[in-house]
């Protein structure tokens, strides 16, 4: 597994919404390939697709509030050689159009790229209806679908660029709120390759999305207690980097996963599928435990649902205690 040194201020990080990276990434992709088109569903500005529309007005199709048609229409465009980026809030994109994604996009292995906005509970005041907490699970179970959950804006931009050049369906999840900008333009990014952002020997914290930052905070707290925690940014959840996950387990002998998603079927489940079959070690999972979100400030909700450094520290100690 590659070690990557991140250059940011852990106490006072610069913050930016990861959706900004999606808007920039779309423009980057379109600059390289004129066949890139964006397929929207009335929420053009809040998904940052408006940044693309400004530069490529003729390559944008607004399908209105009609997610099923949005998805299958994009599938049709891909069959004619276009590279459609379908963008919508994750709950509606992955949920409302799931059958279209399954049977038309994935079964045919079409070159359709899904941009899942407003991922996670940090969506905040809009409440449970708009907080996507199940997409990783319901996307990764589909044959041919690949799933990426970038850690911040720069990683979202790189993921968006990358999937434009890879064949087949991809789901890229990003968030609404400002999150710490932990990577920068020069940070390496490769689809399917997890990387170690902090070395450690007692426990490995494998995280995705904004939880990578919280995991680094947790690692610092654990260090104060003499616990050496490795932190892994596992941005690609499918195809998951089996080799790096096994390596992390072998190095530390205990694993914690952290994600802004339901525990059932998410990134933690994907990691446990790897470890239970290849290298079983004690494991603990941090995530949303089988319940819906609610309205509130993003930080307030993250804390209320146990998505913070404190919970990660507790989980790390539990995992370590389970070692024989």
């Amino acid at each position: 597994m590659k070690n990557v040194k991140l250059n940011f201020d852990l106490d006072n990080p610069k913050k930016k919404p990861s959706r900004d990276g999606y808007g920039d990434g779309l423009n980057d992709a379109a600059a390289k390939n004129p066949n890139v088109v964006a397929i929207g569903a009335d929420i053009t500005a809040s998904t940052r697709v408006d940044w693309f529309v400004k530069e490529h007005p003729d390559s944008f199709y607004d399908l209105g509030i009609a997610e099923q048609n949005q998805m299958a229409f994009a599938a049709g465009m891909s069959l004619m050689g276009k590279v459609p980026f379908v963008c919508n809030y994750g709950v509606f994109l992955a949920g409302r159009a799931w059958d279209q994604i399954r049977t038309t996009v994935c079964y045919n292995n079409l070159n359709v790229k899904l941009g899942g906005a407003h991922g996670g509970i940090s969506v905040g005041p809009d409440g449970a209806t708009h907080q996507a907490l199940e997409e990783i699970s319901i996307m990764r179970c589909l044959p041919n679908m690949k799933v990426i959950v970038p850690a911040d804006s720069w990683e979202t931009r790189k993921a968006t660029r990358a999937v434009a050049e890879l064949d087949g369906p991809y789901y890229v999840r990003f968030g609404r709120e400002k999150v710490p900008e932990i990577t920068d333009e020069s940070t390496p990014f490769e689809v399917g390759k997890a990387y170690c952002v902090q070395e450690g020997t007692d426990v490995a914290i494998i995280a995705c999305g904004a939880m990578v930052y919280h995991s680094m905070l947790a690692a610092r707290e654990l260090a104060k207690e003499g616990i050496s925690a490795m932190v892994v940014n596992c941005h690609t959840i499918k195809p998951i980097d089996r080799e790096s996950i096994v390596e992390a387990a072998k190095t530390t002998g205990a694993v914690v996963t952290a994600e802004e998603h339901q525990l059932m079927g998410g990134m933690g489940s994907a990691v446990s599928e790897v470890l239970s079959t290849e290298y079983p070690v004690p494991m603990q999972m941090v995530g949303v435990n089988d319940r819906f979100g609610q309205s509130g400030d993003p930080d307030e909700l993250m804390n209320a649902y146990g998505l913070n450094a404190e919970e990660i520290c507790k989980a790390a100690k539990r995992a370590i205690a389970m070692k024989r």
Binding site: F73, M77, M80, T103
Partner: peptide, 18 residues
């Protein structure tokens, strides 16, 4: 491919638009 009803006209519309 097809078989899940209701999707074909959307796919065809996407093809036609492209």
């Amino acid at each position: 491919s097809s078989g899940s009803l209701g999707q074909g006209l959307s796919v065809a519309a996407g093809m036609a638009a492209a």
